[in-house]
Amino acid sequence: MSAFWYYVFTLVFFLFDYFILAMGLNIQYGETGILNFAYIGFVAIGSYVTGVTSLPNSVGTGQQYILGWGLPFPINLLLGGLASSALAVLVAFIALRRLRTDYLAVVLISLSLVLYDVINNYVPLFNGADGLYNVPEPLAGFFKLTTNSFIPFFAAVSGVVALIMWWVMHRITNAPLGRTLRAIRDDVEVSSALGKGVFRYQLTSMIIGAFYAGVGGGLIIQFGGSFNPTAWLPGETFVIFAVIIVGGVGNNVGLLVGALLVETLLIHLPAFLPAIPGHPGLIEYIDTMVVGVLLMVMLWFRPQGVVPERIRRSPISLVKRPASAIIDVAAPTEPVVAPVGNPAIQELP
């Protein structure tokens, strides 16, 4: 396989992967209004747990890590997602229960930093700063794949996973559950006054979002075979925020567009450009700046994103009912408090 196709399939993989990551952050932020500034931490946990459940027992691998169960794909991926969800439960009970948006955001970003430092420095957990490597290529033995054919194969696998996860998310966001989450996003107090146990829904949203983060992270370590702390600097969270803000908060199709524009075209494609002579690594920095500027421009000129949240129209089957039933409208009902005997009401401003 030529280098060109290698690049293309890598880009395709990251498109699908960031689509999954964007869906997870979107249900938390876009649908429920939880500013999860620790999102990349959930991605990392998913990635590491997928790695350590897929790697064999650590004896003799030259790495230090927990578990080492040597489980096959996709069980390890599922465990990565579940581990991330478990972290979400913990975070929700510690922080979400008591704090409102801005304070919660500060606590979450601190949490992200703590998590980062612990994993980076405590080697026995996930091999510290070196991270995990030599993670087995999933299904490669089963399908007799070579290193070359694995890349397109796994890009396709990630596409299938993304499609399934999109379908699940589509069902959730279009169900009454999604509507209740959006009600909470729009006004927490009103939702509570309408009888919605806000915390329960926020918890649900955190768990679902974290599962998506975990699976997205798991796919990364399965694709590249390695994962270490340089891959999830706490600032990475904002790249995923850029994906959903550029694409369109609250719109699953928009998220795919956002993943394409931000992640594929801006973050990963320039990495394949030839370096600027005399300034190695400069492109990478320009890249980050471009994402930042794009984010500001979008928030300023088109805060709803490239593909805005769509209006969920009334069920057609009901609207087309015979005119007698509910179509007959507009004319305001006769005032029952007729001015009979009390002209004063009419005179009020």
Partner: peptide
Amino acid sequence: LGGLTVLE
């Protein structure tokens, strides 16, 4: 609930 439709 501003982002929701009237029906929603």
